[in-house]
Amino acid sequence: MTKRAPWPMVVPVGTTTVGTARVRDDARPAMTTAQRRIYELTGDPPQTAALDDPTDPFSPTSSTYTVLPNLTAPKKAPKYRNTRCEHNGIKFDSQRERSHWFHLVQQQAAGLISDLRLQVPFVLTERRQRDDGTWERASKYVADFTYLRDGKLIVEDVKSEATRKNRAYVQKRKQMLDRHGITVKEIK
């Protein structure tokens, strides 16, 4: 490792490199390209009150001025390429989940199922205090849909091929079977 120079570093005038670093020239151009073009069009140097000039072709009130749209960064695509949607104030994580909700609502109306519920949490491990006095959070599994069919509780989760293989989901699915004795039915 090389020895660092004391800070603030003093560089003699005329030096072009220090070690492998290039020293910037403090001499700045008198005008930027944009300022030069404005000067060529109007004849007013940018250091004068060109912004207060009513004949300035680039003033905000002139007809050549255009407002750029809000240029924010585009939203990042969801990890599993799902499209979040909403119906009657109910928010769904995907269109497939929403369409399955419609299917279950029709089954409930026909009397095939009862007690249809959406986004039902199940506690998998309780909140516990560690030996050092800090607390470990409880873990839970949130089922997409639960309902009763012939008196038995059915838990359904809408999953794609990719999310079905998710390690966290697989672990929680196994804990649901172990802790509550419930098999999660995956809807493809």
Rank of each mutant, 00 (worst) to 15 (best):
M176S: 03
L124C: 09
V170G: 02
E40G: 01
K174F: 13
R127T: 11
T61D: 15
R98I: 08
H180K: 01
T15V: 13
A5C: 10
K188V: 12
R127W: 05
F92Y: 09
H180T: 05
T83Y: 08
S59H: 04
R149M: 06
Y80M: 15
T33L: 15
R127Q: 06
Q119W: 13
D93L: 03
T183W: 00
T2F: 14
T83K: 10
A168T: 13
I154F: 00
V11L: 11
N70A: 11
D150R: 15
I38K: 07
S59P: 10
N82D: 14
D115I: 04
I38L: 12
R81N: 14
H103T: 10
Q47K: 11
L124V: 09
T33P: 09
P78S: 08
T33H: 15
E97T: 13
Q108C: 05
G14V: 01
R36M: 14
E136T: 10
K91N: 13
I113F: 06
A109Y: 14
Q129R: 15
R173Y: 05
D26M: 13
G19V: 08
R130P: 02
Q108N: 02
I187V: 14
P46H: 01
F122H: 08
D132L: 06
Q35S: 11
M31G: 07
P54E: 00
G133R: 02
C85S: 03
A5N: 09
I113G: 01
T33V: 11
S62E: 03
Q175G: 07
T146G: 02
R22H: 09
T33Y: 14
T64I: 11
R137D: 09
L116H: 03
F58P: 01
P45F: 09
I113T: 01
T17L: 11
R164T: 08
E136I: 12
D56L: 05
P69H: 06
T163V: 08
P8A: 10
R36G: 09
V170N: 03
H103Q: 06
L68C: 03
V158D: 00
P69M: 06
L148M: 12
E186Y: 00
V120G: 04
R149W: 06
D25Q: 12
E86L: 08
W135H: 04
G111I: 12
A5G: 09
P12Q: 04
F58V: 00
D131K: 07
E86G: 07
V184F: 02
K91V: 11
A110S: 11
W101T: 04
C85A: 01
G19L: 06
R130N: 09
D26H: 13
G111N: 03
K3C: 09
G133Q: 05
T183I: 13
K172R: 08
V158M: 00
A143G: 14
V67G: 01
D44Y: 14
S160P: 01
T134M: 03
S114V: 12
W135Y: 10
V123I: 07
P74M: 12
C85W: 04
M31S: 05
L148H: 07
I182F: 00
A143E: 04
